[in-house]
Amino acid sequence: MVVYIAAVFMLIVFYLLKKGVLPKIATSLIFKFTSDKELVNESDCQKIINTNCKLMRAITCILCAFVLQNVYSQTHKTYFLIVGMEYIDSKAYYARYKKSFSDQATSGVANDVGIMKMIGERNGHVMKELMNAKATVSAIKKNIEDIGKKVVEDDTFIFYFSGHGDTLKDTNGDEITGFDQALVAYDDFLIDDAIYVLLNKYFKKTNNVMIVDACHSSTSYKFTNYFMDFKTVKNKALKFANEEKAIQFEKLQTETIELQGSCAFGEDEDISEAFNLIYIGATEDKKTARGDINGGLLTICLEIVIKRALDPFTWNNYTYPRMACEVAEQMANEHQNLQYHEIGISVDNYAQKTPFKTF
């Protein structure tokens, strides 16, 4: 912000120098406050100041170039896609899958979306919101893809989802548990495989965050890049290595918070992937998450932590692991276990930065 103000100030100074406004003001002031006007010639004074103004304009140009270069270097953007599902096409889901979902559990999704929009606005994010009938599988994927085509290296992409989550029987053999995790979009399931493809295609050089306030949401992206549907893997043990590690992390996180009342997110070995991702899920893959007219428990607790941190202006001292730990402590009071994963070999650096802030 200071850099932007300095840039504007320098441009104003340059403009006033170019138009000769500052020399005239300086001449008038010198002549006005000189006690012996006979010893001061106003026209001579004007010539001296005009000569010095050429030098001032040159210096101002150099300073402007320096300031504008700094402004340009700080133009990394954060793209924030917010998806909220208060209701879905229930008839389509029942006809296709013989599944039904409770609208009561998602009746507070609008509150969740409002909280996330507040976070985005406060941090100057480029936001896109999809809700209900607008949040079809194709629309969500297209918006992720559109953002993927815009981002440049070191930009940030945040994907937030509030609604129903589900587990589906794995059809391609890429899940060690035998089930795929899915987000319940308006018209169909958005499978974790599809999210992985987009992350791997477009977001290898960006900082990425995914927050899912839904049931069965510990691994709603995908853990391993050894997919049978992408390449043939001879070493089957290697194929599931990352997912086994994720399951161990999930178990450890749950036991640590439930039994010890402590939190050590971010201290485990990172999960190897071609992209970096900080993932926050509302609960384990086998469990449901709480949601009601007030919103999802994860999002409600996130707002509590942020407001508490902003009160004494301590938010700049927060990191993603610290934020996740405090949210987890809040959620543990309602017997729900937040899931936190750091994916990617170079994710540590971004994880230690202030959450949601553009760098």
Rank of each mutant, 00 (worst) to 15 (best):
M1C: 02
M1P: 04
I5Y: 08
V8R: 09
F9E: 09
I12L: 15
P23I: 08
I25P: 12
S28I: 03
L29V: 12
F31T: 09
F31S: 13
F33S: 00
S43H: 06
I48Q: 11
I49T: 05
N50Y: 09
M56G: 15
L63M: 13
N70V: 05
Y72A: 13
K77D: 12
T78R: 10
Y79G: 06
Y87H: 15
Y87R: 15
S90Q: 06
A92S: 15
Y93N: 09
K98L: 13
K99F: 09
F101Y: 11
Q104Y: 09
A105C: 05
A105M: 11
G108W: 01
A110L: 05
N111E: 06
V113I: 09
I119R: 03
N123L: 00
H125Y: 00
M131Q: 08
A133F: 07
A139W: 06
D146Y: 04
E153I: 05
T156D: 02
S162E: 03
H164W: 01
G165Y: 02
T167H: 01
L168T: 09
K169Q: 10
N172A: 11
G173R: 04
E175G: 05
T177A: 10
D187P: 10
I191D: 01
V197E: 08
K201H: 01
K201E: 07
Y202N: 00
F203R: 00
V212K: 00
D213W: 00
S218N: 10
T219G: 04
S220H: 01
Y221H: 04
F227Y: 07
F230T: 06
K234V: 08
K239T: 05
E243W: 02
E243G: 06
A246D: 02
A246I: 03
Q248W: 07
Q248V: 12
G261W: 03
S262I: 14
C263M: 02
D268Q: 12
I271Y: 03
E273P: 00
E273T: 07
A274Y: 02
F275L: 02
L277S: 12
A282Q: 06
G291V: 10
D292H: 13
L298C: 07
I300Q: 13
K307Q: 14
R308N: 15
L310Q: 08
F313M: 12
T314E: 10
W315A: 04
W315V: 09
N316M: 04
N316T: 06
Y320F: 13
C325Q: 09
A328K: 07
M331Q: 13
A332N: 15
E334H: 15
E334L: 14
H335W: 10
H335T: 14
Q339K: 12
G344S: 06
N349K: 15
N349Q: 15
K353N: 12
K353I: 00
